[in-house]
Amino acid sequence: MDSQQNSITDLEPVGFWRRALASLVDTFILSLISFSAFLWVYGRMFFVDASIAEQGIFDDFMDYIFPVIAVVAFWSWCSATPGKMLLDMEIVDARTGGKPTLSQWIIRYLGYFVAVLPLGLGILWVAWDKKKQGWHDKMAKTMVVEQDGYDALNRELDIALSKGL
């Protein structure tokens, strides 16, 4: 989004399937980083006995702390994760269309836990909500919207994903 804030009515919310695809990209990237880090710390023994990674503080850091730091840092600096950036999306304050605050980012991250607890209903909510907000978005008062660079390729991807490819 430009340095000027757009009117919230000018912003186009992103639907469920593109957001799901962006999440898969992000999961792949985080998994690749984690796998590489475990391999670096534990060496070839990681291939022989992956349970050795369950023995130390490094495992706890990579499983619980690193994802929080990585995701919130990307949100804070780029208003999106790599998957969302790849698909021309950004996260904005749902009231103003501007950049969310750090407290909104933290509430949004914690909101994921609330959203997935009832069989993922809070995540699936994006598919039915008129503003395309999941429960985590509603809790943090954020929206995922098209970036200014939204193009015809992503519009076609939206159509294909909504039809089930």
Rank of each mutant, 00 (worst) to 15 (best):
V68N: 01
L119D: 00
M45E: 12
V25N: 07
A160I: 03
L119V: 11
M85A: 08
I107A: 10
E12I: 12
I29D: 05
K163F: 04
A94Q: 07
A94C: 04
Q133S: 11
L117N: 00
G98W: 14
F16L: 11
R44M: 05
P67G: 01
W135Q: 06
F46S: 07
V114D: 00
W128Q: 02
M1E: 06
D158M: 13
Q4P: 04
W17A: 14
A50Y: 09
D10A: 14
I57P: 10
D2C: 01
Y109S: 05
D93F: 13
A115H: 00
D158T: 10
D88A: 12
A53R: 11
R19P: 09
V14W: 14
R155D: 10
F74Q: 03
K130M: 00
V114M: 00
Y150D: 02
L157S: 03
Q147T: 10
I91G: 05
R95N: 14
W125D: 01
L117A: 14
D63V: 04
G56F: 12
D137H: 15
S162N: 14
S23Q: 05
E156G: 04
D129T: 02
E90P: 03
E146S: 09
Q5M: 10
K163E: 07
K132I: 07
I91R: 02
L32P: 03
L32W: 11
Y112K: 00
D158S: 13
E12Q: 14
R95I: 01
I91N: 09
F35G: 04
I8N: 06
G43Q: 10
S3Q: 12
L117F: 15
D93Y: 14
V48S: 12
A37R: 04
P13G: 09
F47A: 12
V25P: 08
L153I: 06
G120N: 10
S76D: 03
G83A: 11
